[in-house]
């Protein structure tokens, strides 16, 4: 025979989706939120900083990965889009006035320390973007929590709700504004509607399932209804306040885009439900009882650390062995 035939073990066909297609789909799903952030913080506020942060974070993440893998003689994984995605997520988690040089430090930290030092894609134990955000929060607390909106620097909507203090020049945020995103906050977290459009795309493309985000949000909602307080510090069971809590503080961004990060969430179906519930509880505890009004990032990275444990508890029962004892 002139041409040798290929042989390999079955199966001989593969699905179309790849790591690359998944990463770029998530990237695409974040674009509505990113574009709204640019509109909200760059166009409306006539400041280039938000655009700059997005571009610089993506570029730094990709470059860091490229340099590291080249130096360490590792296969290049830049084209799979995961580094770019980390950069975009990190930028969306920063205040629009955050200094660019600090963002560069954060991006390098995300890729180098959280991702590459633990073995690169698939090996990181916490979400790189959130790891970096928490690192920046600890290092540069002032800049990380300084939010400017409509020319006024002040607290985020959730802080206003929590403390009941409305800073001068700001008004109490309305629910519609919070849903649409006409509020202060990090670049990507303000517009619930833009985030939900992206989330719908991910669900439609079956890139994420409902389990983690729905369990997360429902658990948080129940927790908040029971323990949450209104502006006067009284337990309120107030649905409007609850809705504001759901729209604000990056809960939607976190629930649909970061808690669902494949690498750092459980792969077992029941584990995903438990993971969502833990996230909801932690976020509730941090927001209601914690010092800060937000808590999504910390809730997610702490839950990330629990993933191996959750998976160990939730290995599914094999087909046909339901109700049988292990022999």
């Amino acid at each position: 025979m002139s041409n040798l035939l290929n042989i390999s073990s079955s199966p001989h066909v593969r699905d179309k989706s790849s790591t690359k297609s998944i990463m770029w789909d998530v990237f695409l799903a974040l674009l509505p939120a990113a574009l709204f952030g640019i509109y909200n913080f760059s166009i409306k506020a006539k400041s280039i900083n938000a655009v700059l942060l997005i571009v610089v974070c993506i570029a730094t993440c990709v470059l860091t990965e490229y340099i590291w893998e080249t130096c360490m003689k590792l296969p290049l994984t830049v084209s799979d889009g995961s580094a770019a995605l980390t950069g975009l997520l990190l930028a969306l988690n920063l205040s629009s006035t955050f200094p660019v040089w600090m963002a560069i430090i954060g991006s390098v930290f995300a890729i180098l320390v959280v991702k590459q030092l633990f073995g690169g894609i698939g090996q990181n134990f916490m979400n790189p973007a959130l790891g970096a955000r928490c690192f920046l929060m600890v290092s540069f607390a002032g800049q990380m929590t300084s939010f400017t909106y409509d020319g006024v620097t002040g607290a985020t909507p959730l802080a206003i709700i929590k403390t009941g203090k409305i800073p001068e020049g700001l008004s109490e945020p309305g629910l519609l504004d919070m849903f649409l995103g006409n509020i202060g906050g990090t670049i990507g977290e303000t517009s619930a509607i833009a985030l939900l459009i992206g989330a719908a795309y991910l669900l439609y493309k079956k890139i994420i399932t409902w389990k983690i985000p729905v369990c997360y949000i429902v658990t948080f909602a129940i927790f908040f209804l029971i323990f949450g307080t209104n502006m006067d510090g009284v337990a309120s069971m107030d649905i409007t306040v609850l809705c504001k809590e759901l729209c604000g503080g990056g809960l939607i961004l976190g629930a649909f885009f970061m808690a669902t990060d494949y690498v750092t969430s459980p792969i077992t179906p029941n584990g995903q439900i438990i993971f969502g519930v833990i996230l909801g509880l932690l976020t509730g505890i941090f927001r209601v009882f914690g010092a800060s009004a937000e808590g999504v990032s910390y809730a997610i990275i702490i839950s990330n650390l629990l993933v191996p444990l959750i998976e160990r508890w939730t290995i599914p029962v094999p087909f046909g062995k339901e109700g049988l004892k292990d022999e």
């Binding site: 390999s8 001989h12 066909v13 894609i121 698939g122 494949y262 792969i267 995903q272 998976e311 087909f319």
Partner: peptide
């Protein structure tokens, strides 16, 4: 040959194998 067209890359723990397994197993693990 679709098998030869692709090089395996690191697992990203997406869990698709878990949902696809008719035996209710965890292929990734």
């Amino acid at each position: 040959d679709q098998v030869a067209e692709f090089d395996p890359t690191p697992c990203i723990r997406c869990g698709r194998c878990v949902s696809a397994c008719p035996g209710n197993l965890v292929p990734q693990k």
